[in-house]
């Protein structure tokens, strides 16, 4: 890849202190690099540490050790700069139910520092692209799951960040809803953005991701293009490669 690296993770570790002095090493020494115009997928079984990794990259959690830079800004030392340059969404992020999509997206646009003069235009353009215009002025709590997810995406990218972080963006959506997200992600790549996403859906990852990393029990087991991984493990598709990798590690 000759496009500039936007996300550089170096030895990211996260240890949670649980009850009664137990500790959970959720992420151990995860390093990878993702570039502009690239879709980078984090794959892993439940509890592998995907969400934790993405939360660290989005500055919600502070790494126990290691660090990462987002578009050249260190996430531990310059969290504010990092936040300006990422858009974050997960299947579980909610919306303000008593506000309308327009109000929600405008609010986050303002907080992200979109100039007030161009914000209205940006919101209208985003709503048109994501097909939200029809319900832009209804209260969010009256929207369906799929409609909400589109608003969530608009909210995450209203400031047009170079890096978009998505934690299981298609979870809980029907085929059409998932399709819309996939299209949006592909469009981001076309615009030269870097998309970092986690997923369980292997065929989706295979089609969509330029490169993937497989995480298991907090450790990065393998990294490469889907084709590389399949070749390396002599597997017919990504799913089979994934099962071999994770199953082998478990054994």
């Amino acid at each position: 890849m000759d496009s500039p690296p936007l996300v550089v993770a170096q030895g990211l570790c996260k240890t949670f202190r649980g009850k009664k002095r137990t500790t959970v090493e959720a992420v151990r020494e995860v390093s990878f690099t993702a570039h502009a115009g690239e879709i980078f997928g984090l794959l892993g079984p439940n509890g592998a540490g995907k969400t934790t990794t993405l939360r660290m990259l989005s500055t919600a959690l502070r790494p126990t050790a290691g660090t990462a830079t987002i578009a050249g800004h260190d996430l531990v030392r310059q969290p504010a700069e990092v936040r300006r340059r990422i858009g974050f969404l997960s299947a579980s992020t909610g919306l303000y139910g008593r506000l309308t999509p327009r109000e929600v997206v405008t609010y986050f646009g303002r907080l992200a520092g979109v100039p007030p003069g161009s914000l209205g235009e940006r919101v209208t353009e985003l709503f048109a692209r994501l097909g939200i215009a029809g319900y832009a002025d209804r209260r969010c709590d009256s929207l369906s799951t799929g409609q909400k997810q589109r608003v969530t995406i608009a909210r995450a990218v209203v400031h047009d960040p170079p890096v978009v972080v998505m934690d299981e963006p298609t979870a809980g959506l029907d085929v059409l809803g998932a399709r819309a997200i996939v299209d949006f992600v592909a469009e981001c790549r076309a615009r030269g953005r870097c998309v970092l996403l986690s997923t369980h859906v292997m065929h989706e990852a295979q089609k969509l991701c330029d490169r993937v990393a497989v995480i298991h029990e907090g450790r990065l087991l393998a990294e490469g293009t889907p084709a590389e991984l399949c070749a390396r493990l002599a597997a017919p598709d990504l799913e089979a490669a994934f099962v071999k990798l994770v199953g082998g590690a478990a054994a």
Binding site: S58, T59, A60, A80, R83, R84, I86, F88, L89, S90, S92, T93, G94, L95, Y96, G97, F108, L111, A112, G113, R155, A156
Partner: peptide
């Protein structure tokens, strides 16, 4: 409760 806090905290607002 509404899962909006995380997104709010990920904005540049301190």
């Amino acid at each position: 409760e509404r899962f909006t806090l995380e997104t709010l905290l990920l904005t540049p607002a301190t």
